[in-house]
């Protein structure tokens, strides 16, 4: 009677690698990019990013990607293009065959899905930049990262519901039944979920403290959904994003500007550090165990504070008045 064992009943479930969905939030703050342009122009960074997206899609047939631009005054979709594409994916790509693709010859040398993504991302980004009014940029180096994070989370949630084998309703139960988030995020999730997800933030701006509360809310939501937030900081200094990746078990890297020169370095960072999805991160030593800046922003002035008062009821923090006085 050997071989009868209650433990091997669910052999089939864990065998296949679940497809993974990659949500990229691209910080498109024009001021920050123009400051960065001597070492890493936006075009170079974008071409590296597209290769990275293709590599992600190449890994698994069912892998998905979405790209969100976090601009100075709003966050918007770069891929998938919201209105014309939604629901009619096939018809729209067919339509573009005749219009925008140069010749059939060139088309045959590129994998069709790659081509579609590249065209959509580039045209949407161009539209976004053309839309931007130079006068509104005077206000500062901010970027709508909170909005972008929220869009990313809703998109991931939607895709996860669609991908779950037993239909949307059972998924609600799964989320509700999930144990409170712990540090060992990976093991439990890949067992139950049919889709693993992660968010990658390409950050260039520095000043985010005005969105402290909404960013933190987004972080807690993704912590609960067990979605790691990876951050690749190209420029600037972002306290909260570092906390985001730390809280959600993501990767935070801040490469030296010299290492990124020309874009080739960026690509290697992306391919080696950020490409492995949640499934393969179980096997790899992930980079970035540096000190995390855990400072919070005060709720009244949105300034990052070292020392402050915390309300014992609502846990809001306020700056220390005496500090201001002594200075």
């Amino acid at each position: 009677m050997e071989g009868i064992d209650a433990t091997d009943r669910n052999i089939i479930i864990s065998n296949a690698t679940p497809p993974s969905i990659l949500t990229i939030i691209l910080d498109t703050n024009p001021i920050a990019w123009s400051a960065l342009s001597p070492t890493l122009p936006l075009t170079k960074a974008l071409s590296s990013l597209l290769v990275f997206i293709n590599a992600h899609l190449a890994i698994n047939h069912a892998n998905q990607v979405c790209v969100i631009a976090s601009h100075t005054d709003r966050s918007t979709w770069l891929y998938p293009t919201p209105k014309p594409t939604k629901g009619h994916r096939h018809s729209s790509t067919n339509k573009s065959n005749g219009v925008s693709k140069p010749t059939a010859e060139e088309d045959a040398n590129k994998y069709r899905p790659f081509l579609a993504i590249e065209q959509q991302v580039l045209s949407n980004l161009r539209a976004l930049i053309d839309d931007t009014d130079p006068d509104t940029l005077e206000e500062g180096e901010s970027t709508q990262i909170a909005g972008a994070l929220t869009i990313a989370l809703t998109y991931i949630n939607q895709q996860t519901l669609q991908a779950s084998p037993s239909g949307p309703d059972s998924n609600y139960i799964r989320v509700a039944e999930q144990p409170p988030p712990s540090t060992s995020t990976t093991a439990g999730q890949s067992q139950t979920s049919s889709l693993v997800s992660r968010i990658l933030v390409l950050s260039v701006s520095s000043d985010l403290s005005s969105q402290y509360i909404s960013v933190m809310n987004a972080i807690f939501a993704s912590q609960r959904l067990q979605i790691p937030i990876d951050v690749l900081k190209l420029a600037g200094d972002t306290v909260f994003l570092q906390q985001a990746s730390d809280a959600t078990g993501g990767i935070y890297l801040a490469p030296e500007t010299e290492a990124l020169k020309g874009g080739a370095g960026l690509l290697q960072y992306l391919m080696m550090g950020y490409l492995p999805d949640v499934t393969s991160r179980r096997w790899l030593v992930m980079p970035g165990d540096q000190e995390v800046d855990f400072r919070a922003a005060c709720f009244c002035h949105r300034d990052v504070v070292d020392l402050g008062f915390v309300c014992s009821v609502c846990l809001s923090s306020t700056f220390l008045r005496s500090q201001g006085l002594t200075r």
Binding site: V51, N54, A104, A108, N109, Y111
Partner: peptide, 20 residues
Amino acid sequence: SLRQALTGGGNHRSFGVPSS
């Protein structure tokens, strides 16, 4: 070949030639 697949280019026609 993998780089070519990811970035495009070359003249291998390996991703199928659509009817003209």
